[in-house]
Simulated scan of single mutants.
Amino acid sequence: MDRITLRLSPDLARRFDAAAAGQGGRSRLLRRLMESAARAPLPAAVQAPVTPRSGKLTLRLEAADLVLLEAEASRAGLARTQWATALIRRRLHDRPQLTRPEALALIEVRRELRRIGVNVNQIARALNTAVMEGVVLEVELAQLGAFQQEIGAWVEALGEAFQGNLEYWAAGG
């Protein structure tokens, strides 16, 4: 069943309640008024309903559930609406849901990987263009190996971060 919500001034609400008291209450009078209005002929040019770009979802939770929701959202650094939205989006789209701190950390990881990649390219270019012997070549190769390990560690950390995020938002997680 659909629900319609509207805001009324306190005076109008008081007067409507007084009128509705003798007619079965607010809901019954409103339903009767709407049915009467719906029987009227429709205007000639009725356009098809427009699909909303976004919608509102209202949840009613018991006090104990609301306390748990507030606590969980707070732990994640989110408002309860943001937390609930992230949970729904995770289930609908099967993608990680990043909080602002997580997104900023991901940007930093990307920046570090880019920095390392530039260094690796410089070393590779130097190795390709220069004929190096002995110690110089060993130093460059050692540096290249260190960057390779660092890149591997960052990539592994990213994988763990995404897996942890997916597990957190998974049902029962």
Rank of each mutant, 00 (worst) to 15 (best):
T5R: 10
L6C: 11
S9Y: 01
D11W: 02
D11Q: 02
L12N: 04
L12P: 00
A13D: 04
A13Y: 06
R14F: 11
R15A: 11
A21Y: 10
A21L: 15
Q23V: 14
R26I: 08
R26G: 07
R26F: 11
S27D: 09
S27C: 11
S27M: 08
R28N: 14
L30S: 01
R31F: 04
R31I: 00
R32F: 02
R32E: 01
R32N: 00
M34I: 11
A38N: 01
A38L: 14
A38C: 09
R39W: 00
A40N: 07
P41K: 12
L42S: 12
A45F: 06
A45S: 09
A45T: 03
V46M: 13
A48L: 10
P49N: 12
P49Y: 08
V50G: 05
V50E: 14
P52M: 12
P52K: 07
R53N: 13
S54R: 07
G55V: 06
K56I: 08
K56G: 04
L57M: 05
T58E: 02
T58A: 06
A64C: 11
D65S: 05
L66K: 02
V67D: 07
A71I: 13
A71C: 12
S74R: 15
S74K: 13
G77K: 07
L78Y: 00
A79V: 09
R80E: 08
Q82V: 09
W83Y: 15
T85L: 15
I88Q: 00
R89A: 13
R90I: 06
R91L: 12
R91I: 10
L92V: 15
H93A: 15
Q97S: 05
L98G: 08
L98K: 05
T99N: 09
T99M: 13
A103M: 12
L104W: 12
A105Y: 06
L106P: 01
L106S: 11
I107M: 12
I107L: 14
I107A: 15
E108Y: 06
V109S: 02
R110F: 02
R110H: 03
R111Q: 05
E112T: 10
L113M: 06
L113Q: 00
N121Y: 04
Q122T: 03
Q122A: 01
R125I: 03
R125N: 03
N128E: 13
T129G: 08
V131S: 14
V131P: 02
E133L: 14
G134M: 08
V135W: 12
V135Y: 05
V136M: 11
L141E: 03
A142V: 06
Q143A: 10
L144C: 04
G145M: 02
F147A: 05
Q149K: 12
E150Y: 01
E150M: 01
I151W: 00
I151N: 02
V155D: 00
E156D: 07
E156T: 14
E160K: 15
F162G: 00
Q163G: 10
G164Y: 04
N165S: 08
L166C: 13
L166I: 10
E167D: 14
Y168N: 00
Y168D: 04
W169M: 03
A170C: 05
A171F: 10
A171Y: 07
G173F: 01
